[in-house]
């Protein structure tokens, strides 16, 4: 079995599909052309790690790293299902060995360390392997002086089934990111639906630049826990990307269709070896018009 870039997808085939957010019937092809977003309400569908690679990296540039890491059941965890069963099921469903997929790849020719936390694998929760891959990813970026980009989809936060080991992955990943950042390295965090708990309270919050997809659920405590604790209804839009950007915790919200181009721009400003942006033809034209208008306004 090739783990690295499985193309498994959950969605059934069919010409039309229902948007789970606005419930509109939408043409599947249009959704796919929009990189799995709803043309009506812009809802961003959950996508696989392989699709992320396709969307964001230069074609065929991705080289997986650390694929040899595999989870064990360090606590002998016995819930309703055993942790081992849960892992096996997630592996079968996603075709990946774990929730984190890391590697090197190129964006507009610029070599980067690229990581994805796949929300389809036990809610993208962070156990020892996910933590180890993030830490190794940061170290690889440090060793090779490459920017680090992590696309999070870690609604599960720290993975309960690995107990205290999961919790301390927060410290392990943050320490590795600090080392990279202290040495002048760049870490761009791309937050996607959902990123919560122990993930949001460590590596996901530590980007030099933080960009989120629209309408993603991002926060520390789960909304249900909060509403039970404070015994009141949560305000509309609470813990969404829009809420976070308003409160100052994100640099930008970016539609998936524009994400690759946005990363190219961010890499330009953060990497000295990236060429400056060329002035587009159209802009020169509008600048001239604006000048003309100004003159006219003055007369």
């Amino acid at each position: 079995m090739r783990w690295a870039l499985s193309r498994k997808r959950g969605a059934p085939d069919g010409l039309w599909m229902k948007c789970p957010s606005c419930e509109a019937m939408v043409y599947r092809k249009v959704v796919e052309e929009g990189l799995h977003t709803c043309p009506e309400c812009q809802f961003h569908f959950r996508i696989s790690a392989a699709e992320r690679v396709d969307h964001l990296l230069d074609a065929d540039s991705f080289e997986p790293l650390f694929e040899e890491l595999e989870s064990i059941d360090p606590l002998g965890f016995k819930g309703k299902k055993s942790y081992k069963e849960k892992l096996k099921k997630a592996q079968e469903a996603t075709g990946h060995r774990e929730a984190a997929l890391f590697g090197t790849g190129k964006i507009a020719g610029k070599q980067v360390v690229f990581g994805i936390i796949d929300p389809n694998f036990i809610m993208g929760s962070m156990g020892s392997v996910v933590g180890e891959k993030i830490a190794r990813g940061a170290e690889h970026a440090y060793d090779h002086k490459l920017p680090l980009i992590i696309v999070s989809g870690s609604g599960g936060g720290a993975r309960m089934e690995e107990g205290i080991l999961s919790l301390f992955q927060m410290a392990k990943t943050s320490a590795a990111i600090k080392r990279l950042q202290d040495a002048g390295g760049i870490y761009i965090a791309v937050l996607t639906n959902a990123t919560m708990g122990g993930s949001m309270a460590s590596w996901a919050a530590l980007g030099d630049i933080t960009i989120a997809e629209p309408q993603a659920l991002l926060g520390f405590a789960g909304p249900r826990v909060i509403s039970q604790t404070v015994r009141q209804e949560l305000p509309p839009g609470f813990q969404t990307s829009e809420f976070l950007v308003e409160h100052g915790f994100l640099d930008q919200i970016c539609h998936r269709k524009e994400l690759r181009q946005r990363l190219v721009s961010m890499l330009r400003y953060t990497c000295a070896d990236m060429p400056v942006a060329e002035k587009p033809q159209q802009k020169r034209h509008t600048a001239k018009i604006a000048k003309t208008n100004k003159v006219q306004a003055g007369t």
Partner: peptide, 17 residues
């Protein structure tokens, strides 16, 4: 850490991270 509305508004996860 406190799971509350204001705690989230002021960046509980950011502060802990």
């Amino acid at each position: 850490a406190y799971p509350g509305i204001e705690a989230e508004e002021r960046g509980q996860s950011q502060a802990i991270a």
